[in-house]
């Protein structure tokens, strides 16, 4: 269904080489892959396999070394705020004097001109995003005083408020409680109905098997990509993770 001949890819990578300017070794070599509207993809692979690098390249945080990456048919980095990226928890300074509502409102900043105050519509969008992520009652709490799971939900609420076409989440399930995990999964399902393309990097293979329609297995190259039930084979997992692969 997703690979409908008539639909154009949301994200298109062709012979893309990904890595960092000053490292001699590329992280991902010659990647060719398409993601379509409404694709909900789990990205798995060992540490250092290139999951974060893939996300950072798509969102335009690091330059492409070689090849081509297009978002909506345009070069990556040219899109103002249709790509929302939630980095790993460690990338954020949780001590900052900022409330939950203020963080979620940041999701609107790409759409409000900078001399304007957020309007009534923005406030409504923020309220509904907080409700969907079940953090509305924490709205006036300082972000530092939220639990790890709550913080993760606040950041997903910010992404929802951004109304993105593409959502990239780097390990949203690490060190969160079961309730948070469920709220995140429920919302990913809703995003699929809005044709949002979602890529989620995770280490939780069981969770992937149960909840994600498609899976991308990485280890410095694409080991396998396709329907989860088809690509999560012992052979593919062993190829990506080595001998001590987890059987699911």
């Amino acid at each position: 269904m997703n690979n409908d001949l008539h639909s154009t890819p949301m994200i298109h990578l062709e012979n893309a080489c990904l890595g960092y300017r000053n490292d001699r070794e590329l992280v991902l070599k010659n990647i060719t892959i398409d993601f379509f509207p409404g694709d909900e993809v789990a990205v798995i692979g060992p540490n250092g396999a290139g999951k974060s690098t893939l996300f950072k390249t798509i969102v335009g945080l690091i330059p492409l070394m070689q090849g081509e990456v297009t978002v909506h048919g345009g070069r990556s980095g040219n899109h103002k705020d249709c790509v929302s990226y939630i980095p790993q928890k460690e990338a954020i300074d949780w001590n900052y004097p900022i409330t939950v509502r203020e963080v979620v409102m940041m999701g609107r900043f790409g759409k409000i001109s900078f001399y304007r105050k957020p309007g009534k519509k923005d406030v409504e969008i923020v309220d509904s995003a907080m409700q969907r992520m079940d953090v509305a009652e924490l709205a006036d709490r300082k972000i530092r005083d939220c639990s790890g799971g709550q913080q993760q939900r606040v950041f997903l609420a910010r992404s929802l408020a951004q109304h993105p076409h593409i959502l990239l989440m780097d390990e949203p399930f690490s060190a969160v409680d079961v309730a948070t995990e469920q709220v995140i999964l429920d919302n990913l399902r809703q995003l699929r109905e809005f044709k949002v393309t979602t890529l989620v990097a995770t280490h939780d293979l069981g969770l992937v098997y149960e909840n994600f329609e498609r899976t991308l297995i990485l280890n410095h190259r694409i080991v396998a990509y396709g329907l989860t039930k088809e690509v999560m084979t012992p052979e593919n997992l062993q190829e990506a993770f080595g001998k001590k692969a987890v059987y699911v």
Partner: peptide, 21 residues
């Protein structure tokens, strides 16, 4: 006062600021 929003995002979450171009 004028650039409050820019300074807020850049000091709190520079990655977000970059994704907003």
């Amino acid at each position: 006062f004028f650039f409050y929003r820019f300074f807020l995002v850049v000091t709190f979450d520079p990655v977000m600021a970059k994704t907003l171009k």
